[in-house]
Structures are given as structure tokens and as C-alpha cells.
């Protein structure tokens, strides 16, 4: 007997973005393969964050050409490109977890 009707769609939940895009030295998005469903503001925020990390590092002589940010469920890989960057977004594959 069903006591409560369950919500089963993932409707309002945001999926992790996937794809790649390039940004210029000001963090503006130049080209992108990220699906249109991903909000443009989110892609721009990622680009600006990456560029800011690269530029901040240069100021303290920590220059590097590739940045990898590893999150629990997601990876961002960015390579510096003429002041801007090419950024790859890759959700991690779901892992099997024990049933509760």
C-alpha cells in the first residue's frame, strides 16, 4: 500500500556541468562545448575563478601552466593559454555505495 506519493523525477536538481570551454585573460568565455542547459553565469564563474587563480599565482612567483581542482564528485582541469585558459569540466563517475 502506498501511503505517500513519491517524487521520482530529478526536476529541480542541477546536474554537474560537463564539456570544455576557453576563456580570455579577463575570464570572458570565448568558445564552449558545455551544454546550453548549464547556466552561462556558472560557466563564466568557473572561467573567472580559474583565471584569478592563475594570475594570483604569477604575482607570487608560483607560475604554473596546468591547474587541477579535484572535488568529491567533479574535476576541473585548466591549461593556461596566452593569458587565458582552456578549461575541462568532468564529473566523476558514480561509485557503487552500500544500500542503507
Amino acid at each position: 500500500m502506498d501511503i505517500v506519493k513519491k517524487k521520482t523525477s530529478t526536476g529541480g536538481l542541477q546536474r554537474l556541468p560537463t564539456g570544455a570551454f576557453t576563456v580570455d585573460a579577463q575570464g570572458r568565455v570565448i568558445s564552449s562545448t558545455v551544454p546550453q542547459a548549464v547556466p552561462a553565469a556558472l560557466v563564466r564563474d568557473i572561467g573567472q575563478c580559474v583565471v584569478a587563480v592563475f594570475q594570483g599565482a604569477r604575482k607570487v612567483n608560483m607560475t604554473f601552466t596546468e591547474l587541477v581542482a579535484q572535488y568529491a564528485t567533479f574535476n576541473i582541469t585548466a591549461r593556461e593559454m596566452r593569458g587565458g585558459a582552456i578549461i575541462f569540466l568532468s564529473p566523476k563517475a558514480p561509485k557503487w555505495v552500500s544500500p542503507a
Binding site: 542541477q14 554537474l16 556541468p17 556558472l42 564563474d45 568557473i46 575563478c49 584569478a52 587563480v53 599565482a57 608560483m62 607560475t63 604554473f64 601552466t65 596546468e66 591547474l67 587541477v68 581542482a69 579535484q70 572535488y71 568529491a72 564528485t73 567533479f74 576541473i76 564529473p91
Partner: peptide, 21 residues
């Protein structure tokens, strides 16, 4: 910055950031 970005994306906690030069 990277931690706040993770929250915005819904990617979970930032485990590690690394740079290669």
C-alpha cells in the same frame, strides 16, 4: 575561491587543488 566554486557547482568539498609548472 575554488571551494566556493565547488559549492556553486554542487561538486562537493574541494579535496585537492594542484598546479603543474
Amino acid at each position: 575561491r575554488l571551494r566556493q566554486l565547488g559549492e556553486k557547482v554542487g561538486a562537493g568539498p574541494l579535496a585537492q587543488a594542484s598546479g603543474f609548472g
